[in-house]
Computed example of a mutant assay.
Amino acid sequence: MHDNLDSLPSLNENYELSLEQISSYQRNGHILLRGVADQEEIAVYEPIISDWVQKLNGHDKPVEERDTYGKAFIQVGNLWEKSEAAARFTLAKRFAKIAADLMGVDGVRLYHDQALFKEPGGGHTPWHQDQIYWPFDTDKTITLWMPLVPISEQVGSMTFASESQKIGYINKMVISDESHRTLGQYIEGKGFEKMNYGAMAAGDVTFHSGWTLHSAPGNPTETMRKVMTIIYFADGIRIAEPDSNARKADLAAWLPGQSPGDAAGSRLNPLLYSRV
């Protein structure tokens, strides 16, 4: 499929952000942007990504027999390494520039991509902070979350706890029933406003900060919720000493050959956009 890479949409054209959108993201820790990829672009890239997810799906048990994390989604990372066509999507300059603009930085590198496909009957994604998994000591991280198919109000966007990113590191809890309960109580206690953007079209995106608390509902529909995510960090940040097994595992997986104190940027972390 798509041996001719020249026929793939480049995804390099600029998506203009307003100052209001940038300040809203910096205040709340999340934002919805409509139509970041158009329908023709999605029509080309969705089958490519879906095909690879199907090939690389590691689940061998039906949904109802898995643990909470396993029920939440089919998860496939670094698709861009497996396929030049998928790499066109993950490494797209258009998406990377939005990430840099929202964070207010001069350049961004790829941390990794992840397809997160929530099956029909798939469970909820518990409350968590992404960055407890990442060996970085910075708030300059951001995730793009793009549905490749329309998602209904029932499934919706993720739910975000607005301004929770300002607190930074809350606790080390990995995604679990315990994190859902404990962080849910924390959100209530702090009085954070919860925001869900509802239905999204294929090609709409949310961006959220690495520290923003978020969760996602289950999938009660008959169709697969197909989402592609791309995680970026600001160019020039340093790797922190990993203080948990999750962060040690991430350092080995996504920053191969690098050590604490190094400027993050292994062969798996290309510079995707730079203003300078």
Rank of each mutant, 00 (worst) to 15 (best):
A85C: 03
T138I: 00
T90M: 10
G123D: 02
K118C: 06
P126L: 03
P62W: 04
Q54A: 15
A99F: 13
W80D: 12
L79G: 05
V63Y: 03
F95I: 15
I132Q: 01
Q131W: 09
F136M: 11
A85W: 03
H128W: 06
R66H: 02
E65P: 12
S50L: 11
L91D: 11
A85H: 02
Q75P: 02
L79D: 05
L116W: 04
G104P: 08
H124A: 15
G77L: 08
L79N: 04
R66N: 07
D51I: 10
W134F: 15
G123V: 02
E119F: 01
A86M: 00
Q129Y: 06
P126K: 03
D113P: 10
D113N: 10
I74L: 09
A85N: 03
E84Y: 11
K71N: 03
L116C: 08
A99V: 14
W80Y: 14
H124Q: 13
F95Y: 13
D106Y: 08
P62N: 05
W52I: 15
E81P: 04
G58C: 05
P120D: 04
A86Y: 01
G123C: 04
F95G: 14
D113L: 11
P126A: 03
D130I: 07
D106I: 09
H128E: 04
T141W: 07
S83K: 01
G107V: 14
G121H: 10
K61W: 00
Q131L: 09
A72S: 15
G70Y: 01
I142F: 08
N57Q: 05
R66D: 06
G104C: 07
E64R: 14
P135Q: 06
L116H: 05
W127S: 00
I142G: 13
I142L: 15
S50D: 13
D113V: 12
T141D: 10
K61R: 03
V53L: 10
E84W: 08
A115Q: 09
